[in-house]
Design a protein around this nucleic acid. Structure first.
Lengths: 280, 280
DNA sequence: GAAAAGATGTAGTATTACTACATGTTGGGT
DNA sequence: ACCCAACATGTAGTAATACTACATCTTTTC
């Protein structure tokens, strides 16, 4: 539908083109508006809106709203459009969520190229997991630690520069060190990764594959970071990192078998007994 | 949508149930009909049709047609399959990511029913934002605080019981209190929400719509929590909560206009100057 | 430069969603 | 058995919304 409108843009008259452009810019909003509202937003009259619908081969405004909601809930509407200052609240929120979906769909197609087998094998025999990240990635690290800890292995999250640097120095061959970063260009992370690896630790990087951090790691989960050209666009990379660690968590649990399953079950039971502490 | 109708079938009265059943049987037809036509097909009256819509939590018949076209044009190919112990590592990872995608796709279809407009209006004029959550939701709260803080308003994240209880007592009319919880059944959160609201604070709940926490809040972002039947399945609700807060963040930024855009741009610039502190 | 063809908006109509209220129905208490 | 209350349902009316007829203005053409 939106494609058809775009294609017909040329052969429309002035007023009709105004309507068409506004519809393309705010499709979601159209579905919740009346003819009068659209006319006002386009600085034109109601009949022009109706005429636009007819010109598109529709029976009227009602059919336009139906066709648009169809188009918006189809998967091919997942063309990522940046949020702009002119967007309505509804348009903006949809765009944000669609961007998140898109990045996870991309992730799925890259899963098979990620070194899950190898990493899981090493994690299953290691003694502790340490997750590290700065800024927004720090929250991802904390979340991961909170999650893996339920497998029954000692876990830690490091979210500040000195701690990360220190652990790089003391990490040993029985440790798994997971470093999370969007760009992977923070020197602290690269240095910590290098030292830990020199000490015999298994170093995993969840980051941009072209980065220095990736080069310093034993295994890399490559998460391409598309540029944030728009200041309003939030970083979907965080969601991707979380999903990667979710997948790794489940894969590790399967590898650990009964031992992990038991611990998971017990930790879930513990929450049920005392809902006051649940909250999750 | 159709699932929700099916689920509510029991608690409907006779006339309403007639409507519900006809809608389930002829969903496509509803989208092209008028209230009168549906009423006639169900051998009942127009008000009963309207009442049915209201009972389903919709604003009226118009919204029903929109929700139905959405439901009908969304391919439910992404049927979520649980991870089982027999899965290979590759299978398991794909399932985990697909479950995450599915939950975000569901979220998108529910966005239009969420009170973004109202909440944003209130947030734009408030003095500080406080985010709270326990366990896994605590990390979501921290992440949200870290994100909203870049808009230039004071932010805080509370992730333990005493802090949350205390803030509930001291929150005032210029505060926005955002409580995040999967089930919403932690008494601490409900009590804190209630007290804060009594004190005049604006209380937002990101949680299960049927929960006590939701009932105690000023505005609710309803995130249905499907059961975790399988211990290996991670909780996608966390991703959904993050996405909701992302959307709210962007919407708020748009509402604040130049002021927020300026702060966002400056905070991004600050990271560029010193990549050592970036990490995100 | 005038007339014709087309585009656009004003004002009005018909349709449609929705509401107020009166009537019927069921369940519980005395 | 009776009454009352609460709830469910439909009738009739209202407000809104989509759509149309026509007059005005613009552009094109000879």
């Amino acid at each position: 539908m939106l494609g058809e409108i775009n294609q017909s843009l040329e052969r429309l008259s002035r007023a009709e083109k105004q309507v068409a452009e506004w519809v393309l810019a705010h499709p979601r909003q159209v579905t919740e508006s009346t003819v009068a509202e659209v006319a006002r937003a386009c600085a034109t009259s109601e009949p022009s809106v109706i005429r636009f619908c007819r010109r598109m081969g529709l029976s009227g405004f009602r059919e336009l709203t139906i066709r648009l909601t169809e188009a918006l809930s189809r998967p091919d509407s997942l063309v990522h459009r940046d949020v702009s200052a002119a967007d309505s609240t509804a348009d903006a929120t949809v765009k944000v969520v669609e961007a998140a979906i898109q990045s996870l769909v991309d992730l799925r197609s890259q899963l098979s190229r990620m070194p899950f087998e190898r990493v899981v094998a090493r994690m299953a025999t290691s003694q502790q997991f340490v997750f590290a990240g700065l800024g927004a990635s720090g929250h991802v690290a904390s979340d991961a630690s909170h999650k893996f800890f339920r497998l029954g292995k000692p876990c830690n999250a490091l979210t500040d520069t000195p701690s990360i640097r220190q652990f790089g120095a003391i990490a040993g061959s029985r440790d798994v060190f997971v470093l999370i970063s969007k760009n992977g260009d923070a020197p602290v992370l690269r240095e910590a990764a290098r030292r830990a690896r020199d000490n015999g630790a298994f170093v995993i990087a969840v980051t941009n594959p072209g980065s220095e951090l990736a080069a310093a790691a034993s295994s890399v989960f490559a998460c391409d970071s598309q540029e944030d050209t728009n200041i309003y666009t939030p970083r979907s990379s965080r969601l991707v990192h979380l999903a990667v660690l979710d997948a790794l968590h489940v894969a590790t649990a399967l590898a650990l078998g009964d031992f992990a399953a038991d611990n998971l079950r017990r930790s879930k039971d513990a929450l049920l007994v005392d809902p006051g502490a649940a909250g999750g």
